[in-house]
């Protein structure tokens, strides 16, 4: 029973980590059809904001994770959207190349500023014992945070005028302009929101994974696979893909090793895309957010 509980928590934790690293990319891709190759670097920046805010500025770690990281990385996203991305809308390959260039620039800049070594902070929550097993208390925080992010995003897109306008813009940006809306502003805010979510994920993961300027590449690969496998529907697609991959990854990690867990995740993704080229929501959960 204890083992089953701890395994269930670890699986939920694995799903939560996937949600936190991929939801920002899912928002930007799902709403704007832009694949932001700098997404991993936004997560990395979020991690550094939390670590430096805590260790150098002496700020409260929860404030750094929940407020400062998403705020600063969201602002960075808005600036980069204004400088680069907005000039390339409708040109998916060009956007991928431009954001890839941005990712390289951010990695280079951060390497110059902080060096190429892993930095970390200790987790703010103690470990939790369940019978003879124990797990990190931070996993519970990640599960709660991922749940909150999903519910908050669903409410944002379903119940607010911004969400309504964003969903309409996703379908027909020209028609939104014909009605008097400003699709460019919606795109800018959506890109900033995606960056802020990446920053939040980076800040939340920093205590358990640590940060190095090149860590973004490990995040972007998983996030990219999750988003493509989920399909065009932002929240339902992300939840479906993260649940599937998180469970497979964690089960194989328990049965074999973490590396086998990663391989199982990738094999599962390849099979899924082969069977469902439009992603999970291309076949199931149609018409959802």
């Amino acid at each position: 029973m204890d083992f089953a509980s701890i395994l269930a928590i670890e699986i939920l934790g694995s799903i939560a980590i996937l949600v936190l690293i991929s939801i920002g990319l899912a928002v930007v891709f799902g709403m704007m059809k832009v694949i932001n190759m700098a997404h991993g670097e936004f997560i990395m920046l979020g991690g550094y904001v939390t670590i430096f805010g805590t260790t150098h500025a002496g700020l409260n770690i929860w404030f750094c994770i929940l407020v400062l990281s998403p705020l600063i990385v969201g602002l960075v996203g808005l600036v980069l959207e204004w400088l680069v991305v907005r000039h390339l809308y409708g040109r998916m390959i060009d956007t991928m190349l431009a954001t890839w260039g941005l990712s390289l620039a951010i990695v280079g800049l951060m390497t110059m500023l902080v060096g190429n070594t892993t930095t970390g902070i200790s987790t703010p929550l103690p470990s939790v014992a369940i019978g003879k097993f124990s797990t990190s208390g931070h996993v519970f925080f990640l599960i709660a945070l991922a749940t909150f992010v999903i519910i908050a995003l669903a409410c944002l897109f379903k119940f607010t005028t911004f969400g309504l306008t964003a969903r309409a813009t996703t379908q027909d940006a020209n028609m939104v302009a014909n009605l008097g809306g400003n699709p460019r502003r919606i795109y800018a805010v959506t890109f900033g929101l995606g960056a802020a979510l990446a920053g939040l994920g980076g800040g939340a993961l920093a205590p358990i994974i640590g940060v190095i300027p090149t860590i973004g590449i490990t995040y972007i690969a998983k996030a990219f696979i999750t988003v493509i496998s989920g399909g065009a529907t932002v929240i339902a697609g992300n939840l479906a893909a993260t649940s599937l991959f998180g469970t497979i990854n964690q089960l194989f990690t328990y049965w074999y090793t973490p590396i086998i867990g990663e391989v199982a995740l990738l094999v599962c993704a390849v099979i899924l895309i082969r069977l469902l080229p439009q992603g999970i929501t291309g076949r199931f959960f149609k018409g959802t957010i």
Partner: peptide, 14 residues
């Protein structure tokens, strides 16, 4: 050019 994934009420609100 209606928004096919939005409801009629949401289209009107748009």
């Amino acid at each position: 050019h209606i928004f096919s994934n939005l409801t009629v009420a949401e289209n009107l609100k748009m």
